[in-house]
């Protein structure tokens, strides 16, 4: 007997059920077709304010501008204030912004280990926990938010949803039922507490996550 059949038949024997029970399969499929939403925390009406508060609690920094055109200047300001290099890899969708005018050298490609800064958008953002939802794809490299020491994300206020549940619903509405290869929920810079339970910001992922909210207050 294969390992698979052996394991499944032991599970069935212990449950006291037979293989190929269509009624049990149908019951499970019914759960998948009408997923039950579980209990959730109550959220305030102002999702942008909630998102900002929770993002800052996870050690992200947050800025806000009115229009996408203002993003390069906001990025330049952030980098200059911290003495960080004005050189970045960005998602192609953001390549059309006037980075040169803001004095930033931006390459529209996936980030590699040498890029000091990665600039991404986000699929949407989660107000409950101050989290970015990043969906991998041809134009949205996962490495850009992961390898550089500084990750800057552009977050349209219109894309802030209450919770993970709404994030998944939006993904399916816009990209189809199947999930993209990687859905990464990112909440602030990487950290570790593995030495004496002392929290250190900056483990394997970025040391800094800076969020630029775009849209009218």
């Amino acid at each position: 007997m294969s390992s698979r059949d052996d394991i499944l038949s032991r599970v069935r024997a212990n449950l006291g059920v037979a293989a190929g029970d269509e009624a049990r399969r149908a019951a499970a499929r019914a759960v998948l077709e009408t997923p039950a939403i579980g209990p959730r925390p109550s959220l305030p009406d102002d999702l942008a304010a909630r998102f900002r508060m929770k993002a800052e609690a996870m050690a992200s920094t947050v800025d806000r501008v009115a229009t996408p055109a203002e993003v390069p200047a906001a990025v330049a300001r952030y980098l200059a204030e911290r003495g960080l290099p004005a050189r970045a890899a960005c998602w192609p969708a953001l390549a059309g912004l006037d980075w040169a005018a803001a004095g930033i050298d931006v390459a529209a490609r996936a980030a590699n280990g040498d890029d000091p800064v990665g600039i991404t958008g986000c699929f949407c953002a989660i107000a409950e926990t101050g989290t970015l939802l990043l969906a991998s794809g041809p134009q949205t490299a996962a490495t850009t938010s992961l390898l550089p020491e500084t990750h800057i994300a552009v977050v349209p206020v219109s894309r802030i949803v209450p919770a993970m549940e709404e994030g998944f619903a939006l993904l399916r509405a816009e990209q189809g039922f199947d999930l993209p290869r990687a859905v990464n929920f990112v909440s602030g810079p990487s950290r570790t507490g593995d030495i004496e339970q002392t929290i250190v910001i900056g483990a394997h992922g970025p040391y800094r996550v800076h969020l630029i909210l775009v849209g009218d207050a």
């Binding site: 996870m58 926990t129 990687a182 859905v183 929920f185 909440s187 602030g188 810079p189 992922g205």
Partner: peptide, 8 residues
């Protein structure tokens, strides 16, 4: 409330 990285 949430871990830094949750990857699906």
């Amino acid at each position: 409330e949430i871990s830094n990285y949750v990857s699906v």
